[in-house]
Design a protein around this nucleic acid. Structure first.
Lengths: 339, 339
DNA sequence: CTGTTAGCGCATTCAT
DNA sequence: ATGAATGCGCTAACAG
């Protein structure tokens, strides 16, 4: 580890003319110590630049003061937002987060999860992920666990998520209100996200909105991508190739919307004059597309903050009920009124 | 920590009818053990689902098997790319990374750095950051240290970075080659990035290219932003307000280029017909702008991989020389030929 | 090859 | 209020 000469609690006990235990006491603060000794200890600590050995602390106390965070894909704006929220919330606490990245690959995720557990985290925040419910459930018996951005029925109290169906419903309704009748939807295969059905819920919201508006959903207008930009580009090609007329597209996420946007551009189709476009996620760049994209804002940072708070509450055994998260439809220039 | 009944090395020693040390030996593998005992131990481990206590291990061995990574801004594509590279490289090793985020705020960075050190990391990778050189230098005496995406003169052997000046020079030359003479540049204040002068080096590359081409640099055509998208938008306004004619803009990063792009769009200026635009970073979305943006690719993932490898080498005391990183000009549709 | 022993640095009884 | 003693779970000499 560090090459620096390790100064231990003994050293400062010596220097401050007190016992080891006394030093430990001023450090933890949970036992009364005479003011004079306290200051002496503090002085010694300062002088010798003492830093307690975290491993010894944890070994002796049985607490690691770390929160494990299992995430997917560093670099995805939504997940990064969640991380930021977690970081912010944990900052003023004695707990610090350690991250593991599952990269949306079950095997990788499993290893990451294992690593976190092995590091004796005091709490675990699982953000998304592919792990089967039973596994998560099993972990939740061993360690305080919060699931963010994913719904696990048997663990409802500890799940924070967003009502994707309602959000998609609202987005589709907006297109309908603007006079659109032929609205395409770019989704992803149901199995794509494994146990996560966000995307499927968005599909359901889309269908519901159409149905309630008396519009017969047209299966030909629903195409699948894999949530990547590239797949949006290809989905658009498929859509155009199907020869079904449409005046608007609702994409299940912004990444695909961005790909679709480029596809339209290449075909000389203008947004929104020829085709209106709505995405989902409110990724930062969507506000800077030309024209800026209408999309659905998911409160990522808030979600992260709440998740962190929830895990702290859980550790301190005063579990709070979790409120559901509301989304917001961000209306920008990419939708035109028809007729 | 975990509520699970902790099974210790003793338990499995018992079950396998061997001594604690033998178990430790099969675990670490760095000492010969009789095949029969080994299998017995392995069986016991498996049966009792034993996991070594990492804190006890570290405390006893003096190794933490962790690499600290100080990063700035989760969510920034360039930095995230570096993280991904680090993750990938460390995955097959016994080391696992722990991250700290400085958020480009000196105070936050200091705390994050401190936390990492306190966690007894065996090595430290500093990605960017504001900490003064002396501080980094001081840390480097205590712990194997690699600096990525930043140049620290007194620590040259342990720094991995990119030749920003040359990259900017190349980008500007490209615009000149395409016939542009009035090329604006959007940069950031020299002090903005604190000790990091990436941005300033890009400015220098720009100036050099102009000068070599016999074009008198026009100070009026250089405006400052703060590297954010929003600031790109404002920079463009300033540029237009200055009434100086220009046919091309070279932005010091893609974020600002994206803002500039939107500003041009709002003013009805087409890219590249009216104004050509070049960015820097090759952020993923730039390929999906309409039209796609010409930019400079920084090999973020490779940089992360190399950094991780370098720190491993450093820990094992077989330091390797670090090659410089080459950038690549990604030419896309946002530049038009003039005259 | 293997068991025994002695700490690693600290928190936490238990006395005082 | 404080010092002494014990042990957290494991690694690393040290003997055999």
């Amino acid at each position: 580890m560090s090459k620096a000469a390790k100064v231990t609690i003994q050293d400062i006990a010596h220097k401050a003319q007190v016992s080891q235990s006394t030093v430990s006491r001023v450090l933890s603060g949970n036992a009364p110590v005479a003011a004079t000794k306290r200051t002496a200890v503090l002085a010694a600590i300062d002088e010798l630049n003492y830093r307690p050995n975290i491993f010894a602390q944890s070994l002796a106390s049985g607490q690691s003061l770390t929160i494990g965070v299992l995430t997917q894909n560093f670099g995805n704006p939504f997940y990064d937002g969640i991380l930021v929220g977690i970081l912010q919330t944990l900052e003023p606490t004695p707990y610090s987060p350690i991250f593991g990245d599952g990269r949306w690959q079950l095997a990788v995720e499993k290893r990451a999860l294992r690593t976190l557990i092995d590091r004796q985290v005091d709490g675990l925040i699982v953000v998304g992920g592919l792990s089967p419910q039973e596994e998560i459930l099993a972990y939740s018996r061993d360690v305080p666990l919060i699931v963010a951005a994913r719904e696990i029925p048997d663990l409802a109290d500890q799940c924070l998520f967003i009502d994707n169906k309602k959000a998609a419903y609202d987005a589709t309704c907006y297109l309908i209100d603007m006079g659109h009748r032929h609205i395409a939807h770019v989704t992803a295969p149901m199995y794509y996200h494994g146990p996560i059905n966000d995307i499927f819920q968005r599909y359901q919201g889309y269908i519901q909105a159409l149905t309630e508006a008396g519009i017969e959903p047209d299966p030909q207008l629903v195409v699948e991508g894999d949530l990547s930009r590239q797949s949006g580009l290809m989905a658009l090609q498929n859509l155009v190739a199907s020869k079904r007329p449409f005046t608007a597209i609702f994409a299940a996420n912004d990444q695909m919307a961005i790909g679709i946007r480029l596809g339209l551009y290449r075909r000389g189709l203008r947004v929104p004059e020829d085709v209106s476009l709505v995405g989902f996620d409110d990724e930062p760049t969507t506000a800077y597309l030309t024209p800026p994209l209408t999309t659905v804002r998911q409160p990522a940072i808030e979600l992260g903050q709440t998740a962190a708070q929830a895990i702290l509450d859980l550790i301190n055994a005063n579990q709070q009920p979790c409120d559901p998260f509301d989304t917001e439809l961000i209306i920008r220039e990419s939708v035109a009124r028809r007729r």
